[in-house]
Structure formats: structure tokens, C-alpha cells
């Protein structure tokens, strides 16, 4: 019975997604894992004083924020693209009737 505890690697799909994006970028050679670890470690420790990491959301929110900055600093993404796509996805969800697949083509379904 001891080893039966369910292994749940990710509590939320977006946790898995951000993890996979990071691993994939590293495996494609877009950055060195060590460099990422240092930046992420620094972000976790500076966060330590403001808000404690108690659950996986706290942890992956810092991961997401750090990765965005890390990729921005490396010139892999532009901050304004992220803002734009964020708004596009939001609009797509709002404009897609419930039950239908949401994609960026539904941006302006109205």
C-alpha cells in the first residue's frame, strides 16, 4: 500500500505546459539549464520575503514570470507580443460559443 499514493506530477494543465515549454526550449538549445536554474533560483529567493511558496500555483507563477523575463532578456520574445497574444486569447475565449474549440481564429467571432 505504501507506494500506491497517486503520482500527480502536475496539479494544473498550465503548470505542465510551462514546464514543457521550458524543457523543450532547453532541449532545442535555446538556453543552458544552468543559466535558467540560477535565474529561477534568484527569483524564488527574492520572492521568499514577500509571499511564501505554499502551493504549486505560487511556484509556477514565479516560474512563468521568470521565464517571460528570461526569454525577453535573451531576445527570444518581445514583451508586446505577449501582451497582444494574451489579449487575443482572452478575446478568443470570450467570442467562442461554449462547447466549441477555442483558437485564435475565433478572435473576432462577433
Amino acid at each position: 500500500m505504501i507506494n500506491k499514493a497517486e503520482y500527480r506530477p502536475f496539479n494544473e494543465p498550465w503548470h505542465a505546459q510551462i514546464f514543457a515549454i521550458t524543457v523543450h526550449l532547453n532541449e532545442q538549445g535555446h538556453f543552458n539549464w544552468n543559466d535558467w536554474s540560477k535565474v529561477f533560483g534568484a527569483a524564488l529567493s527574492s520572492k521568499g520575503s514577500e509571499k511564501l511558496i505554499i502551493n504549486d500555483d505560487d511556484y509556477y507563477l514565479i516560474w512563468l514570470k521568470t521565464l517571460e523575463k528570461f526569454l525577453g532578456d535573451a531576445g527570444k520574445i518581445q514583451p508586446n507580443e505577449i501582451i497582444q497574444y494574451f489579449q487575443d486569447w482572452r478575446a478568443a475565449f470570450l467570442n467562442t460559443p461554449h462547447g466549441q474549440p477555442v483558437n485564435l481564429a475565433n478572435l473576432s467571432a462577433d
Partner: peptide
Amino acid sequence: PELKVKALETAL
């Protein structure tokens, strides 16, 4: 955060 991850994925 979910939308942010989607945005990041789209951009990448």
C-alpha cells in the same frame, strides 16, 4: 496565468 502561458506558447 493560463492565458499568459498560451500567449507565451503562441509567441514562441
